[in-house]
Design a protein around this nucleic acid. Structure first.
Length: 341
RNA sequence: GGCGCGGUGGCAGAGUGGUCAUGCAGCUGACUGCAACUCAGUGUACGCCGGUUCGAUUCCGACCCGCGCCU
């Protein structure tokens, strides 16, 4: 019903805010601070924080903070369960509608860029993943190698295969999976999405969106922050947290929950694979690489307002600066016009 | 002081008289239902000085540094 509004009425659409940024950039602090100035309700955009019992390692807001400032879409799955970008897009849309209905503004905060993208671009009418088919494809790959499956894909869907490297296991698998379920090539389904609209539509039709990202000015300093934070996770007894999951007995490291940065390394330690020192070393490396990938997304992100963080500043000062700048950005957008004063 | 072994890119670690080791890190990038995933690209490296040679990281000599042993 909201989507019938034409784009010329874009200013009368309800507002929504995206707050993005690499890991350890201070997104949560800023979001919480914003809530004191604007009638916002937070929605987490984080593929690890959706899992219950994964608190320290996912840098989840503390229990106390969550009580004061509720975050939606956090703690909504057991680590044994799957959660996908499509699940998120659906859930987030529902939450956004609820928040808007209360006359408040949805503020989506997090670092899972694919989730933001799914919301922004919508999703094609693709079938959900099918564990049985995936297992079969994996077994095939073990036997013949991914390049062989890539060649197979090239026969049924040359366009998708052309866009994929022969080693790109996960995406070759997905393209083959879609073909096996629907009998249609992925590239065709994508094209239809543009022509006929998609299963999950872009939120741009329904919201006046303001997109803000926290961008560290200096990479070296970001790396230092990452190191410091990972260290403090270990000091907060991250080991026990993972050990609890480990001792359940029904979890295994192939689950998407346990592939998360830190959890993966700690799991290896608990299995006797690496030393405790290696957990720290490899955990920090994995976090740095995550931040790099997040920044790569943000570099080409359209319609983005960037807030640069200067690590030369003290933490307090830098988060105050970020808040001031963010409020300025929001003031210049329609957010204030529609909601406040 | 003597003898032995070794000094290879940020780190680890092969090797060769004349195109590339490789792995990791770093950097860059890709990404439509696992995304904190997965994948790709990316380096004027051979301790120092001389010699042999058309050509030396590779052979020879001196020197410096490290390790071990001996007196």
């Amino acid at each position: 019903m909201m989507s019938v509004m034409s784009s010329s009425l874009t200013d009368s659409l309800p507002p929504a805010i995206f707050l993005m940024g690499p890991t350890a950039s201070g997104k949560t602090d800023l979001a919480v601070a914003l809530r004191k100035h604007l009638p916002v309700e937070l929605i987490g955009v984080d593929s690890s924080q959706v899992y219950r019992g994964m608190d320290i390692g996912s840098a989840k807001p503390t229990r106390e903070l969550l009580e004061q400032v509720p975050h939606r879409l956090i703690n909504i799955r057991d680590p044994s369960e799957a959660y996908s970008a499509a699940d998120f897009a659906q859930d987030a849309r529902k939450e956004m509608e609820g928040i808007t209905r209360q006359g408040r503004i949805p503020l989506l905060v997090g670092g899972t860029m694919l989730y933001f993208k799914a919301l922004l671009d919508g999703l094609a009418d693709n079938p959900p993943s099918d564990l049985k088919i995936r297992k079969k494809i994996e077994a095939d790959a073990r036997e013949k190698g991914w390049p062989y499956l890539h060649a197979q894909l090239a026969e049924i869907d040359p366009e998708s295969a052309g866009a994929l490297h022969p080693n790109h296991s996960q995406r070759i698998q997905r393209a083959l999976e879609i073909f096996q379920i629907t009998g249609k090539p992925l590239s065709l389904i994508k094209r239809n999405q543009q022509e006929k609209g998609s299963l999950i539509e872009s939120i741009l039709n329904d919201y006046k969106l303001v997109q803000v990202a926290l961008i560290p000015l200096d990479r070296l300093c970001l790396h230092q922050c990452i190191e410091r934070r990972f260290k403090s996770m270990l000091d907060a007894d991250f080991e026990s947290e993972v050990q609890m999951l480990y001792e359940r007995g029904d979890l295994h490291p192939d689950l998407s929950s346990l592939r998360a940065v830190g959890y993966k390394q700690m799991w290896r330690y608990l299995s006797g694979d690496i030393s405790y020192d290696e957990v720290y070393r490899l955990g920090v490396i994995a976090t740095r690489q995550l931040a790099k990938r997040q920044l790569t997304w943000l570099k080409k992100w359209p319609d983005l307002h960037q807030i640069h963080i200067n690590y030369a500043d003290e933490k307090k000062i830098s988060s105050e600066k970020a808040l001031v700048e963010c409020l300025k950005i929001l003031k210049n957008s329609c957010v204030y016009r529609n909601i406040s004063q």
